[in-house]
């Protein structure tokens, strides 16, 4: 009997089994997923915010002013019938002009003694309009259409069915 016969089955030298191949994640993959989730979350939050704001819509009385305009522009603003106002940026209607008042434009010029004198410009006008504007009152102030904060001094590029111009906010108050 041959004592040196090895009856055991051959065992491979490399006993480690190869791992099954599958998805491999690295840091950049996680960063991409994170960025996509952030974008999706921001869109959802914005949609919820706009939806909530629309429920709280109310009307405010806003006085706007537009200065140093020609008589043609001033006459186009100063109409008897109420005029709808739209934002130039996205064509959304924000309210209605209910009153307009046209006055000659005053400017300051120095006289012979260097003193500023107020004089009327013969070709320019200022128009003050009162409008009912839709929006939401928030802690920061009145948000036009629930999205744009209207503060005294802020300008808005608007248009009506007759004219396109830039309004400056003079005052804001709840509609009486």
């Amino acid at each position: 009997m041959n004592k040196n016969v090895n009856t055991n089955k051959a065992v491979p030298k490399n006993k480690k089994k190869k791992k099954a191949s599958g998805p491999r994640f690295n840091v950049f993959d996680f960063l991409i997923i994170f960025a996509i989730l952030i974008c999706a979350g921001a869109i959802i939050v914005r949609a919820i915010f706009i939806g909530t704001a629309k429920k709280d819509m109310t009307t405010a009385t806003v006085v706007f002013e537009v200065s140093y305009i020609s008589d043609v522009t001033a006459n186009a603003l100063d109409k008897e019938e109420p005029q709808p106002i739209y934002l130039q940026s996205d064509d959304t209607r924000i309210g209605t002009i209910i009153k307009a008042e046209q006055t000659p434009q005053k400017i300051l010029e120095k006289d012979e003694n260097g003193i500023l004198q107020s004089v009327i410009h013969p070709e320019k006008y200022t128009v003050k309009t009162t409008a009912n504007i839709e929006g939401v009152w928030s802690d920061d102030g009145f948000l036009i259409n629930g999205t744009q904060l209207a503060t005294v001094g802020k300008t808005f590029d608007i248009y009506t069915p007759y004219v396109s111009c830039t309004f400056t906010v003079v005052s804001i108050s709840p509609k009486q």
Binding site: T73, A76, D91, Y159, P161, Y162, V163, S164, C165
Partner: peptide, 16 residues
């Protein structure tokens, strides 16, 4: 809807 004319997306309004 807004009763304004447009020429190539330019609104035909005074001041435009």
């Amino acid at each position: 809807s807004r009763k304004i004319y447009k020429v190539n997306h330019i609104r035909m309004l005074i001041g435009e």
